[in-house]
């Protein structure tokens, strides 16, 4: 098993080769292939049911592909290597936070599970980083959706992962919450983290990422660099791509 710390920084952080996933008779992924370089930010657009979450789950090692290969930070995602889990942070639809524990208890718990030294101090720092220092002793149950999402992000990055998977992180956030999250994700991106994010917010995805892809019916119908796209007309193009893909 390759040691990710010894990988060539110019080599792709994520390599996906012809990934397919079927659930019974449903083809969730229909042969997706792409590479993502270290420090790159890829946004995945696509309608509901396009297989974006399935792709994220496969890359995070949460579910196995039916066929194809995927390598993340040098680890084959199918091997269930704990090294992979040390190198990635995942934000999914759910917060993964215990409702009856405080923000500090939640993050201390995760810091300990990651085997971090000074778990409590790391947890306090992570809460401070997402701007919720004043609420660290409050139960998660009392937090708004936006606050929970911020603590969820702190959970996902507490072990300082080099790769982040964000599955619709803006869902349910008000404009202020979205703005705070955008700024935080931007700061994570400038720290040379490799990020894959799924979102339905086209302007936000274009603004934040280096590359965008449109996933339709389990495959990439479009992939391109954000700075080469006409940001004003991309939404119309997005709908064309979706209609063509159907």
């Amino acid at each position: 098993m390759p040691d990710p710390s010894k990988l060539d920084p110019s080599s792709p952080a994520i390599q996906v080769q012809n990934i397919r996933k079927t659930f019974g008779v449903v083809n969730a992924l229909n042969g997706i292939s792409f590479d993502l370089n270290t420090g790159e930010f890829l946004t995945l657009f696509g309608p509901n049911g396009a297989g974006k979450t399935t792709l994220i789950k496969i890359l995070a090692g949460l579910t196995k592909p039916t066929s194809g290969t995927a390598t993340v930070a040098g680890y084959d995602v199918q091997n269930g290597d704990s090294g992979l889990r040390r190198d990635i942070g995942v934000i999914s639809h759910t917060s993964c936070l215990y409702a009856d524990l405080t923000a500090l208890e939640n993050l201390t718990f995760y810091a300990k599970m990651y085997g971090l030294d000074n778990a409590k101090e790391r947890a306090m720092q992570a809460i401070e980083d997402v701007g919720l220092k004043g609420r660290m002793h409050d139960r998660i149950r009392t937090f708004s959706r936006g606050m929970q999402q911020r603590i969820s992000i702190a959970r996902a990055v507490i072990h300082n992962p080099s790769i982040l998977f964000l599955d619709e992180p803006f869902t349910g956030l008000d404009p202020h919450g979205s703005n705070v999250l955008k700024q935080y994700l931007h700061s994570l991106h400038t720290e040379k983290r490799t990020i894959i994010m799924t979102t339905h917010d086209i302007s936000c995805g274009l603004e934040m990422s280096d590359r965008v892809a449109v996933q339709v019916k389990g495959k990439f119908a479009f992939m391109g660099k954000s700075n080469e796209l006409d940001k004003n007309n991309f939404e119309d193009r997005y709908f064309e791509i979706i209609n063509d893909g159907k």
Partner: peptide, 17 residues
Amino acid sequence: LEKENGCLEGLILTPAD
């Protein structure tokens, strides 16, 4: 308790065996 808020997923994502 682990299923609430998807905590089991968070637990599985840690490097814990």
